[in-house]
Design a protein around this nucleic acid. Structure first.
Length: 321
DNA sequence: TTCCAGGGGTAGA
DNA sequence: TCTACCCATGGA
């Protein structure tokens, strides 16, 4: 229902689009402040538009896959300005990669034949965050820790440093979220983390040895020393971008490959325990190959290695997209 | 209790 | 470039 405090926006993707498949393509939808509401197949999150100004978003698919559009119900306490509406559109387009063109990858899949030729149209858009800063912080929080630990650390960051959206009342779905009773918050802005001292930061969130890395990253971004958003959108050559990303403390070869994927570049494989286990099982009969041998499996996919690996893994897991 | 996770940094070879 | 070792934390 659209009340005086809600606005509904409709966004059209470039090409075919599968909302649920994109939202659930990898673990990002389970990391705060995102919440997946299964009953309505909706992604909820708070989006911070400016200091002290946040809105709650309820994002869902409209129409039938693979030709869906995205519907965004925006709940806001005070009137939504045109610039704010545009900001929300841009954030959601980024999250769901509505402007990404994967036709070259689909063409390669058709040429391969077999299961590749049956790749669902709309596959390959992996959910990302409204900002690259959020993606970088979350990626650092996935390293050398189990997924439950990643979820805990990100939730702590949001709880400790995120902003409440304002005065709109919580919806029914929020009462059934994994953090019932707690007011939803935005992902922390860089300056929200940088405002506190390194010591205070480490005390307020349990991030282990990652704490100084994430605090240092936030400080560099807040002070304008590192322009992360421009970096993600730049047309710089991938090797150069990769070197830049690996210059961030806490980002190594796995992290840079993950972040390149999140920046829409799929030429590098994120070699982690999930990748190693999958390739060993699928391509080496359960025996453990070296990382080099495992990488070689996807060598022929060139600039699309990451998506080829991801499709094989999702397909083996029985995912529909 | 021990191991290790959707690894990364550092030192030393 | 490669290897060994260390790193906080919590789940298994």
């Amino acid at each position: 229902m659209t009340g005086p405090d809600a606005t509904v926006l409709t966004l059209s993707p470039a090409g075919r689009f599968h909302f649920r498949g994109t939202a659930r393509a990898h673990g990002w939808v389970d990391l705060a402040p995102n919440t997946w509401v299964p009953a309505t197949e909706t992604v909820h999150r708070v989006l911070r538009l400016a200091p002290g100004r946040g809105v709650r978003l309820e994002i869902s698919g409209r129409g039938r896959p693979p030709r869906q559009e995205v519907e965004v119900r925006v709940r806001h306490g005070t009137r939504l300005g045109d610039a704010e509406e545009e900001q929300i559109r841009a954030a959601v387009r980024r999250m769901f990669r509505l402007d990404e063109d994967l036709s070259e990858f689909y063409a390669l899949c058709r040429d391969r034949g077999g299961p590749w030729a049956r790749i669902p149209r709309g596959f390959g858009r992996l959910l990302r965050s409204p900002t690259f800063f959020e993606d970088v912080v979350k990626t650092i929080c996935t390293t050398n820790i189990q997924w439950a630990g990643t979820r805990r650390m990100v939730a702590e960051l949001v709880r400790a440093f995120g902003e409440r959206p304002g005065d709109a009342p919580p919806t029914v779905d929020e009462e059934t979220s994994d953090r019932p009773g707690e007011p939803p918050r935005s992902f922390p802005a860089p300056d929200a983390l940088a405002r506190v001292s390194r010591e205070a930061f480490a005390e307020r969130v349990t991030l282990g040895y990652r704490a100084p890395w994430i605090h240092g990253l936030a400080r560099r971004v807040a002070e304008g020393e590192l322009e992360l958003e421009a970096l993600a959108d730049s047309d710089r050559p991938t090797p150069e971008l990769r070197r830049e990303l690996e210059g961030i403390r806490g980002v190594g070869s796995y992290g840079s490959a993950t972040l390149l994927m999140l920046a829409g570049r799929y030429g590098h494989l994120a070699v982690d325990s999930v990748f190693r286990d999958f390739v060993a099982e699928r391509h080496f009969g359960g025996a453990r190959p070296s990382d080099g041998e495992a990488r070689a499996v996807y060598e022929g996919w060139g600039e699309w290695r990451y998506l080829a690996y991801w499709f094989e893994m999702r397909q083996a897991a029985g995912a529909d997209v």
